Simulated scan of single mutants.
Amino acid sequence: MPPKKKGGGKSIVIDGVDTSSMTREQLEVFCQRIKEENEREREERNFFQLERDKLRTFWEITRNELEEARAKIRNKERQIEENTEKNEETLKFYKQKVKHLQYEHENDLTECKAQALVSLKKAGDDHMAQEKELLADKIALKNKIQEQEFNHQEQVRALKLQHSEEISKARSEYEDKAKELELKYEKKFIELREELNLKHSMEIAEIEERKNAQLNALTKQHEEAYGEMKMYYNDITLNNLALISSLKDQMEVLRNQNERMTKQVADLTAENRKMIEPLSQARAEVAEYKRQLTNYEKDKISLENTKIKLNQTKRDFEDLKWANEALELRFEKLQAEYQELKKRFNQAVLEVQQKSSLKNVLLENE
């Protein structure tokens, strides 16, 4: 039999369930369930309390880490400021050094210009002196050339006179020889003719004596003698013609030699005249080359000194540039470390905020 209701039938509602209509077994089951839920809620509360304690401990640890990170960041920022100040001081020092080097370079350049002007003036004076010497040499050479031309003309005149005398002498000698030969052969011809006439007379006498007996022999002998005489006179005539031709050839050779020597003398005179101007130009070019060589050596020495100083300045500039790049790399590294610390700090703050929000939610639920 179900229990009676008390209190005039007043109902009790727990978790939206009306307990007035429940039986005892249902109430026991319901109470057991409520008890289990209460135990579970208690366990959850204990769990959340432990989690709250853990969060508080973690928050304390995170706060300490945050303070340490902030201290490290402050130290890093202080180091960065110190390094920046040192870098600025170093750059200022090297800038002063570069200005000093530039000032020294300008002074050296001014000295080089002054030395170059002095050298140029000295070279101009030397050039004027050399020009005067060259003018004197030119006048002396001109006089010498005129004297040589006069001597050469005298020699040519003497050679022409000597050649004319030799030609006249040779002509007279050849004419005398020709006359002597002509007289000699004419005399021989007369002697031979007389001898032949005598012989012919004797032969005629013999012919008259022998008459008919020796007529054929005498005729034959006469013919032979006539042939020999003809050949002999022909040989004499040919020899005379050959001698005359040889003399004419020798005269032609002498005439050609005379003309060739006259032409050579004219060519030598013209060549001497042509060589005067190139000789003067060559001497002027030699003087100019000597002057340019002197100036070139001086400019070369000045350029070498300037190059040495410029290379030293470049090396100093490269050292400064390398130091600046090293400082920039170090600054970039410090900046990267700063960004990393800042990122870690933001992450830690975000985690703390999330945990704090979760803790507040749990506390509000309690």
Rank of each mutant, 00 (worst) to 15 (best):
E304G: 03
L27I: 12
H200I: 08
K169P: 00
R56V: 09
Y232D: 06
D126I: 04
K169R: 14
N258H: 10
I207S: 10
L218H: 13
S280F: 14
N360M: 00
Q102H: 07
Q148C: 03
I34Q: 15
R63A: 07
I207M: 11
Q312T: 04
R315F: 03
K298G: 02
S164I: 09
M261I: 10
H127T: 14
D319Y: 06
H163F: 12
Y296C: 09
E271I: 03
R33T: 10
E228M: 08
R171W: 02
A323S: 14
Q146E: 13
A225D: 12
K230G: 03
H105E: 13
F150P: 00
L279M: 07
D267Q: 09
R70G: 00
K230F: 02
K35Q: 15
A217N: 11
A129H: 05
N240R: 12
I204A: 10
D137S: 13
S245Y: 01
H152I: 02
N87S: 14
E259S: 05
K113L: 04
L109N: 13
Q26N: 01
A71I: 03
R74S: 10
I276E: 04
T237V: 07
D176A: 11
Y338I: 15
Q353R: 11
L362K: 01
E304V: 12
C112L: 13
A326H: 04
E133K: 14
V118K: 12
E223V: 10
K199S: 10
L303R: 14
V13M: 02
T19W: 00
A123L: 12
S245K: 14
Y226M: 10
E43A: 07
K188R: 14
G124Y: 12
N197C: 02
E224D: 10
E65S: 05
N151Q: 13
M22F: 03
N295H: 08
I207F: 10
A326Y: 00
E288T: 07
D137K: 14
L91G: 04
K6P: 05
E224Y: 03
L66V: 03
N234I: 06
E186A: 13
L238H: 11
I276P: 01
V98S: 15
K86S: 06
I80W: 06
S11F: 06
A282T: 04
A123Q: 10
R33Q: 14
M22H: 00
A266D: 11
Q148P: 00
M202F: 08
A323M: 07
C112T: 11
E208V: 03
